[in-house]
Design a protein around this nucleic acid. Sequence first.
DNA 1: ACTGGATGTTACC
DNA 2: TGGTAACCCTCCAG
Length: 554
Amino acid sequence: MAPQKRRTAFPKVLIESDTDSEQSSSEEEEEEQEVDPPSEEENENKDKIEDSNDAKKKGKATITISLKKVCKVCKKAGHEAGFKGATYIDCPMKPCFLCKMPGHTTMTCPHRVTTEHGVIPAPHKNIQNPVEFIFERQLRPGITSIKPPYVIPDQVNCAAIRYHSRRVTCLEFHPTNNHILLSGDKKGQLGVWDFAKVHEKTVYGNIHSCILNNMRFSPANDGTIYAASSDGTISCTDLETGISSSLINLNPDGWQGPASWRMLYGMDINSEKSVVLVADNFGFLYLVDARSNSQTGKAIMIHKKGSKVVGLHCNPFQPDLLLSCGNDHFARLWDMRRLEAGSSLCNLEHRRVVNSAYFSPLSGCKILTTSQDNRLRIWDSIFGNLDSPSREIVHSHDFNRHLTPFRAEWDPKDPSESLAVIGRYISENYNGTALHPIDFIDINTGQLVAEVMDPNITTITPVNKLHPRDDVLASGSSRSLFIWRPKEKYDDAERLDMRKIVVFGGDEKKHGKKSRDEYDDDDSDDEKFNFKGKNVKAKKSKKETTPYCRKAKR
DNA sequence: ACTGGATGTTACC
DNA sequence: TGGTAACCCTCCAG
């Protein structure tokens, strides 16, 4: 850094305090703004250094520090945005934080989550192509339209745990063992937790060196998990032994700068073809043969060049159909037999980045997407008209760079394929506490079926997964994991005392200097890694098993 | 009970 | 088209 000259004489400091305006009525204050724009200008610039002409002549500057209260959102005086107790007051100068439309705030938004979400109904579609006709005649009857009553896991009465040292990024239930939950975090750690025996967990710490973005169980072996990471590798880990190998490593030469560092985001497995599909941050799809552990063919550009492909999903019913989504504002439908750049069957347009796109879990006929424009979109039939979504549901799940992106997930048990779960970004004031519920939404009507929360969980819960067989919800909120079950099925005695949240060792505050790597909440998801390239073919993961309760959280 | 810092995406030039 | 400032409900440590 260039050496700086010290001023010989300290400049005159003028402090504009807020006292004047507080003494005057608010009406006066507003008037003052209107008739005297320069003063507003001054208010806008807190700590502004202003050289007066007089001072300039003498070679001294006058520092004007404005202590007048300004809105932290728009920097204008006369109002303030932020929490008043547990209620957040929006800045009236900005468009609605929920639906993004100007003219009102979240409080008065017609889509505000109170009893139901805003639904924008489908444009009337009366064009029926032959495929759609056949679908309606032959396949639709297979999907029950009779909705069984929803069972909502709405109480943390089983287990809560914290062993991740970074925010949770993904969750996966074991395909056969009902009590095993796998979790990945921003640091790349993989947790295996038996939530029936609350204290039993294993954390694999050296499989990946940064964000574990997605994971899937091997369809051939339920003791094996595949994971895609921003370190550019796909790992294949044996859950019993912790032995892990890399299927591919897209950064064999290590860190050569952000322009070349490839990160893996979307991942899924096509069990029919025994192919692991992954996609990277530059728009490319890679196919890896799960038997030979080798890449088949070349990488295919499936999204806009240079854009992240954050989600991949193979159709559960029709294995040749692939769904992808990413930062180019599109979800795209592909035929696996004809995969090449620009050959998508369909492009589902969104107004902003698409966080996730999933086929419905049973029939695979519907598509549910989550976009950064605060809308869930439902396409009712992949055989029908996909030019526009059948419905848009306004829901608060905005991007915040410090959070794992929200993804609406289907309930895999719901035979009517109408229930979805997604965490909510904006809070509500519940008895004086600002809480961020987990929303259960009927995607046919847009109605909010349930909002699930616990007064002890004040953090946002962007990661949620419903159990494939049991009435269980697993959620990841910041660094913690929670297991929810239906209140109605358990009496209060079984309710978990949230003070007994289990926090395992290795996460406890250390005294003295902490290394940057250890504690900074560095969300350096993409560019600023400091790791050397690793190209490990097979390695034994370090097992950190700490079977004791370390601390009771308030 | 504060405050600072980490840093992805977008809008704008 | 590339570079960069701005950015609304975080979260945790100090």
